[in-house]
């Protein structure tokens, strides 16, 4: 994915200023920075969930495999199938585990029951949830624990066979144990999907990411400060702000 000159306005207030960032295929890119620095806004642009926000305007260019996704010509349903998203708070639909999968699958044209069941098993295995829930697929999804719910949400996104997965602080609402499980899961997805993860947890970013980008709130506008491979981001940052941030002096 190629992001260039991305600017976002909420009504007339600029929220994100001129972000240009290439996102490497089949790697994990971590977005770090203090609250209000525009990380989540940036993430929402990548599958155009910004369209849901009243008064939000996006300028610039985002290309997915060379295809422009900003602009009217883009098929949003297809885009969001290709670019999935996981939210901070797990958001399973309040119906059965099975229906959490069959409803979106049917929406994207998979009507065959057996196909659906096969996909369901495949993705639940991929997130390590199969053995835990295979006997209660008819139970309401909100009955699951927080960590299980988040893994279910990841599996639900994977069921649509996306190319890119956006994760907005996927572990921050979970207890340490579940957080660890989800983190391992994300790491395991690295080689098959392009992952963009927003996190406040620097050690986590360092553990799992291949690239890191620092966002900063400069006079009310979120800006990209530095973007680098993980090693150099933490050990030899070029910007002083990055140095201070990773050292815990600022932010």
């Amino acid at each position: 994915m190629e992001v260039s000159g991305l600017q976002v306005y909420y009504s007339s207030q600029q929220a994100l200023g001129r972000v240009t960032l290439p996102i490497r295929k089949e790697a994990i890119t971590a977005l770090v920075g203090p609250s209000g620095s525009g990380k989540t806004t940036f993430l929402l642009c990548l599958n155009r969930l910004t369209d849901l926000i009243p008064g939000c305007r996006v300028e610039g260019s985002i290309r997915l495999h060379g295809e422009e996704i900003l602009g009217h010509g883009c098929n949003l349903l297809r885009l969001r199938r290709r670019v999935g998203m996981i939210f901070q708070k797990p958001n399973p639909f309040p119906f059965s585990i099975r229906r959490n999968f069959t409803l979106p699958l049917r929406e994207h044209g998979m009507k065959d029951r057996q196909e659906q069941e096969a996909r369901l098993e495949q993705v639940l295995r991929a997130v390590g949830l199969w053995s835990e829930v295979k006997d209660r697929l008819h139970r309401p999804a909100p009955e699951l624990s927080g960590g299980q719910q988040q893994r279910l949400c990841i599996a639900r996104a994977l069921a649509l066979e996306p190319e890119v997965l956006l994760l907005d602080e996927p572990c921050s609402a979970l207890d340490p144990l579940s957080s660890g499980i989800v983190e391992d899961l994300i790491t395991s997805l690295r080689n098959r999907y392009t992952l963009v993860i927003v996190t406040h947890n620097l050690p986590q970013a360092r553990r799992i990411a291949d690239f890191a980008s620092l966002f900063w709130n400069v006079e009310g506008v979120g800006r990209l400060v530095e973007s680098a491979p993980i090693q150099s981001f933490f050990e030899a940052p070029t910007e002083k702000l990055t140095r201070d941030y990773v050292a815990g002096v600022r932010g």
Binding site: L79, G84, F87, F93, E107, H108, C153, L160
Partner: peptide, 24 residues
Amino acid sequence: DLRRGAAALGMRQNTTMAFVILPA
């Protein structure tokens, strides 16, 4: 959360309405 979740899964507004929002 439900509306955003459904949108993020590429579900149409009408489907979301009928199968997610209305029952809720």
